[in-house]
Design a protein around this nucleic acid. Structure first.
Lengths: 157, 157
DNA sequence: GGACCATACATGACGTGTCACCTACCCTGC
DNA sequence: GCAGGGTAGGTGACACGTCATGTATGGTCC
C-alpha cells in the first residue's frame, strides 16, 4: 500500500499482477518445453542453441560468441553443449586461430531436429500468446519489457 | 529455420516482444534469486514454500495442499521439502487423520529466515518492476497475464 | 625469452525440476 | 473381510543451471 520507502509492501493490484506474471511464466515455459520435447525431442535450451547455430556462418560458432548471443554464462554453454554432443545434435571443433578456443557446429541430426521442431514451436507460441493479444498490446508489452530490462540492477545472466 | 507458407512466422513486433519477455524473465528470476540467497540464504522456491507455511494454520500444511497452493507437482514438493528439511527450515510430521498423509511445518529457523528475507525481497520486486510502471500499466498487465493464463493449452504444472 | 596476468573453455559439486515408478494407505462393493 | 481401484506421498534417474575452480593458451613487459 504505502509507497513510502519504509514500508514497500505491494498493493492488491501489484500483488495480483505479480502472481499472474510468475504463474504464467512457469506455465508457458513448461508447456513450450513439453510440446517441443514430445514433438522433436528438444528442450527449450536445445532449441535456443540450435537457432543460433543455424543462423551462424557454416553452422558453427565460437563458444564465447554463442554465450554472448544467448546471454548465458560460458560454463552453462559448456555444460549444455556437452550434453547436446552426447546426443549428436552438435559437435565440438578446435579453433586453429586461437588454441584456447573451440567451435560448436550443428550436426545433421541437429539440423533435422530443429527443422522438425521450429514450425510447431512457433505455432505454440502463437497459440499460447499472440492469438490472445491485439497488435497494440504486443507493441505495448514489447515497450514495457524492454523498459524493465534496460533498467539497472538486473543480472545479465 | 524453415519458413513454410502455412506456418505463420512471428512478425517483427512479435519477435521483439517475445525476446524481451523471455530475456526479462530469466534476468528477473536470476536477480531475485541471487539477492535473496545473499540476503537470507533462501532460494526463490524456498521463499514460496515458506510464504505458504507462514500463512497456514499453526505454520503447517498437508503436502498436497502445499502442492495445490504453489501449483507444483507433488513430487516436486516432496523433493524440495526434503532438501529444506536437511537445512532445518521445515520439519515433516505424520498425519493422524490419514495414514498416507504428511504435514510440513515451518521451523524456527525457517521463520527467522523468511522474516529476514521478506522485506528485501519485496523491495527488490518493487525496484526491478513496479518502480518503472504506472498504476494503469500494472492493472493492464495484470489483466493481460490473467487472460493468457486462463486460456486452454497451458499445463498447470 | 621468461615472468606474469588475462582469456577461453572445461569440470565437479551441488541445488533444482520432471518423469516414471513405487509403497502404503483409504474406501467402496460385494 | 477382502478385492480392486484410487489417493498421498516418496524415490531414483536424469536434465538443467550456478558457482568455484582448474588447465591451457595468448599477450605483454622487462
Amino acid at each position: 500500500m504505502a509507497k513510502t520507502n519504509d514500508n514497500p509492501w505491494l498493493n492488491d493490484d501489484e500483488q495480483h499482477m505479480w502472481r499472474q506474471w510468475m504463474g504464467l511464466d512457469a506455465e508457458l515455459l513448461a508447456t513450450l518445453n513439453r510440446e517441443m520435447q514430445a514433438d522433436a525431442g528438444l528442450s527449450n535450451p536445445d532449441y535456443q542453441v540450435l537457432v543460433v547455430l543455424t543462423d551462424s556462418e557454416e553452422g558453427r560458432i565460437r563458444v564465447s560468441d554463442l554465450a554472448a548471443s544467448l546471454q548465458w554464462e560460458r560454463s552453462r554453454v559448456s555444460h549444455h553443449v556437452a550434453r547436446m554432443e552426447k546426443r549428436d545434435l552438435v559437435t565440438r571443433l578446435g579453433c586453429p586461430d586461437d588454441g584456447r578456443g573451440a567451435f560448436v557446429r550443428i550436426s545433421e541430426t541437429g539440423r533435422a531436429a530443429i527443422e522438425r521442431a521450429a514450425p510447431g514451436h512457433v505455432r505454440a507460441v502463437r497459440r499460447l500468446v499472440f492469438d490472445a493479444l491485439t497488435a497494440d498490446e504486443v507493441a505495448q508489452l514489447g515497450e514495457i519489457f524492454q523498459r524493465l530490462r534496460s533498467r539497472a540492477g538486473l543480472s545479465t545472466g
